Computed example of a mutant assay.
Amino acid sequence: MNDLRDINLLKTSELFVTRHKWFSPYFELTDGQFIYARMRYKGYWKRYAIIETADNTWTIKMKGWFNRSLLLNQGEDQTIGTITPSNWKRDIKVQTDNGFEATYQYKKLFSKTLTLRNDQFGDIMQLVQRVWGFKKPFEVKIEPQHLKNNLPLPLPLLAFIGINIVLIRQARAAAAAAS
């Protein structure tokens, strides 16, 4: 039984992400009453993320051991796009096969807010990282004109792509600090 609610029924523009479990966590995108999407990891090193929405399942896989790019798949193995970090900036570009391109970027130098921006749609959403938020580590603020889901990719998928990027960067920074 699918307990996820369709994102088209969303009435508010502010959501948050809840974290469940400590050692093998999974994350849920919720407004406090309904759950709109869920993300969990398969494997120990967070190289394989599974995102479930009300109507589809998506996976994000590392392209290779020494490659920084990620593959965006619909289902298990139907590749529909790539997620590529910039070389000298903190920007991350999402490109899909249907022509949709968007960029996750930090607008300020020491900001904890990751903004998803597209040339055609403008600012789509902001992912705000909470400093001491262990149970609720992220807030998702969707621009009101995009609530009717006129985008080629669903809003929960775009939110969890950004959250996955932040979690991968946190894991890499922790590994670098430990060595």
Rank of each mutant, 00 (worst) to 15 (best):
L10T: 02
K136V: 12
Q126D: 13
I124G: 02
K46T: 04
F160N: 00
T57A: 14
G162W: 09
N8C: 14
N118R: 04
L71C: 08
L10N: 02
V131N: 14
K63E: 09
H20Y: 09
V94N: 00
K21M: 14
A49Q: 06
P144T: 04
K141R: 14
D55T: 11
I50T: 07
F134R: 15
R130H: 11
L72F: 09
G43K: 05
T53R: 06
A37C: 09
A173L: 13
H20M: 09
L155K: 11
Q145C: 09
E139I: 14
W58T: 00
E143D: 15
L29I: 01
W88L: 13
R40E: 11
L71V: 04
Y48H: 15
I80L: 10
F134S: 12
G133R: 02
D97G: 08
M39D: 02
I168P: 03
R117C: 11
A178L: 09
M62T: 14
R169W: 15
E101N: 13
R90V: 00
E101F: 08
G32A: 01
F100E: 03
D31M: 06
G32V: 01
E76Q: 15
P85I: 00
K107R: 14
N87Q: 09
F121W: 02
V140A: 05
F160P: 01
T84W: 02
F138N: 09
R40I: 01
R68D: 12
Q78T: 05
I80N: 05
A49D: 11
G75C: 12
E28D: 11
N98S: 15
G99N: 04
K135M: 10
H20R: 15
A159Y: 01
Y26K: 01
Q126P: 05
R90Q: 13
L109T: 11
G133S: 02
E139W: 10
N67A: 10
I161G: 10
N118Q: 01
R68M: 08
R169I: 05
Q95G: 11
G133A: 01
L155G: 04
P156K: 01
V140P: 04
A177W: 07
A102L: 08
F34A: 15
S86L: 07
